[in-house]
Write a protein that binds this DNA or RNA. Structure first.
Lengths: 344, 344
DNA sequence: CCGGCCTGAGAAAGCGTTTTCTCGGTTCGC
DNA sequence: GCGAACCGAGAAAACGCTTTCTCAGGCCGG
């Protein structure tokens, strides 16, 4: 007969009663403490099995001071990049027996700090993914969030590893590629204003402009999704640019779709590039030229760093920098005006 | 001066000491219990603010017997469908102050039951998303998982709402559409064998075949991702079918990409359809004909149902059935052989 | 044969909250 | 003016577990 303590669920006390031992002994057995007489241990195990006893994780957490859970806060769960990071993180953490709690800030940066704090209190560590909050805010809360790892954002706070993708270099590589194809008038379809990675791209373009005074680079406002790209067709055409650097693959795909609807041909009329190399980029028509970011790996690395912090190991690498790799596909081609020059 | 109790973090005891009251009173104030003298309450609040006190959620959870967290287990976090469900669920739950814990089973069905149990114990409720486990297993564990809501799977267990998409009807609608275009030889590129939604599609096709004895339907093995579609090009061409029903949009996109590489034209040489209407489906070239599933809504509904269960409300709708909506786009066209017939 | 050591298990003290119980001090009613 | 109802706040129990503390009993050596 299964007896229950006050609450509905079976607790350690029920097992102890059934096996005729104390709570303490049951706990010892369940945790593989070998200072228990084998006979008694067997009896306890039998009782536990019969009652289908499973320790209550909340009680354990309180006693042990750890939850075996980590949190991740992302600005927008709809974004494939963050999904990929989440996936990599979740996979890696699961391998070490950790679960992940997600917090989506829906791009409202004012919520981030609160969300992060709440998540952190429930978890053993936190991954802050491309936070949109200001630097000041970040510095302010970072210490209280430890163990913390940052993705695509850096901080002066000690002990906070940062994994950042070198968007600046990536965007330069892309621009360089377009210039080699003969484009002399480029346009950058920017991302969300608060996005740090957008900032890095802008910096990269500044460097590029300094190195290529002959190339014109027009800045266009934008966003981070399909519709941004789709809605930017007019602005892009007005700019007169023949090589377009979209903020990311989504924007690029939206733009290509819009251009296609206008009867324009990519890449013969206009070259389009993306960023990230999301899985779909390979399968668009034409296949998208983009800068590949090892994004799942980023999630995995985030876990490695966080684990080191949680275990208080000396983290050998306090952070790392990821270089995007240029993926030249079919969405870029020789500039229209420069075409004969190339052939000639 | 900030004093800390034994542990590093600030606890209720610290606030109590600073305000010169007992823990109990602090707790009362923090929880808006109005049986506290306003002066004392103010003093407590001041102390709490000064110490930046935030209640420890684990302690709260233990005392209250709830975690304000729900769990979701999915077979594969890389799948856009599950991502969308997660997103909808997370959004809806957040609005009610709940967080979500994710568990990815990586398509290994034997892990699902354990994962589900663990997740459930940490949470106030659980969403089981298209579980791959057997019916027997599901019936076995379902009672212990309550409050539980199922997505794309049903159970005989009482009190477990099921949200299912009518894939059977959807696939019939698609087939019907192809037949109307003059196709008489169709092929179905199946999904993962253990997928219940694949089973529903197969049932739908049986109904379809019964209603259309003149139409040939060839069954092809498959999977659920891009590469499945890309790798199925040969099998598809060998089948001689002119209308292809891919398991989902991903497979369809992979297939279209493969066909394109072979120099085949969609839809002039062959018509391709997907399923789900993921955001990308609109932007492929040609845009993909598919059956739209209100997937984000599914996640939201899952939360509504789960919330009702958690609050022990009488759930008026013990589950619901979602009808896919046929989205005719450019990837389907008149059958090659039947073309002249159509025009004539 | 007795004292010290060691082993193994129960008792009890946390972990950080909430909540019931209790009780001193008012206030109200008769 | 005195008992009853009441109000507000502290003490203590409870939530379910881990872990230290403690102690009984068995074993060994002297």
């Amino acid at each position: 007969m299964v007896r229950k303590s006050a609450s509905g669920r079976i607790g350690i006390a029920d097992v102890a009663a059934k096996a005729g031992v104390s709570h303490a002994t049951v706990s010892r057995v369940m945790n593989g403490n070998f200072t228990v007489d084998p006979d008694i241990a067997a009896r306890v195990r039998a009782a536990a099995a019969e009652l289908k006893y499973q320790p209550n994780p909340v009680g354990r957490s309180l006693a042990l001071g750890k939850t075996d859970t980590i949190g991740i806060v992302v600005p927008d769960l709809a974004n494939p990049t963050f999904q990929a990071i989440l996936r990599g993180l979740s996979r890696a953490a699961a391998q070490d027996g950790y679960r992940v709690l997600i917090a989506d800030s829906f791009e409202v940066s004012s919520e981030e700090a609160i969300l992060a704090g709440e998540a952190r209190r429930r978890c053993d560590g936190l991954v802050l993914c491309a936070p949109r909050m200001t630097d000041a805010e970040l510095e302010e809360i970072a210490p209280s969030l430890h163990p913390l790892v940052l993705i695509n954002r850096t901080t002066a706070t000690a002990g906070v590893p940062s994994l950042v993708v070198d968007y600046g270099q990536g965007v330069q590589d892309i621009a360089e590629h377009l210039v080699e194809l003969g484009h002399t008038r480029l346009a950058f379809l920017a991302g969300p204003p608060r996005s740090a990675s957008n900032g890095l791209r802008l910096q990269g373009l500044e460097s590029f402009k300094a190195a290529h005074p002959d190339v014109e680079v027009i800045m266009l406002e934008g966003g981070s999704d399909f519709d941004t790209g789709h809605g930017a067709v007019d602005a892009v055409l007005d700019s007169g640019a023949t090589g377009i650097l979209a903020f990311n693959d989504l924007v690029a795909m939206g733009l290509m779709s819009g251009l296609h609807e206008r009867g324009l041909d990519v890449p013969n009329d206009i070259s389009v590039t993306g960023f990230d190399d999301i899985p779909f980029a390979k399968y668009t028509t034409p296949a998208l030229t983009t800068a590949a970011v090892p994004i799942t790996e980023l999630g995995e690395q985030a876990w490695q760093q966080l684990r080191a912090l949680i275990r208080k190991e000396q983290s050998d690498t306090p952070g790392s920098r990821y270089q995007p790799r240029l993926e030249v596909r079919a969405s870029t081609g020789p500039a229209k005006a420069a075409r004969s020059a190339v052939h000639g």
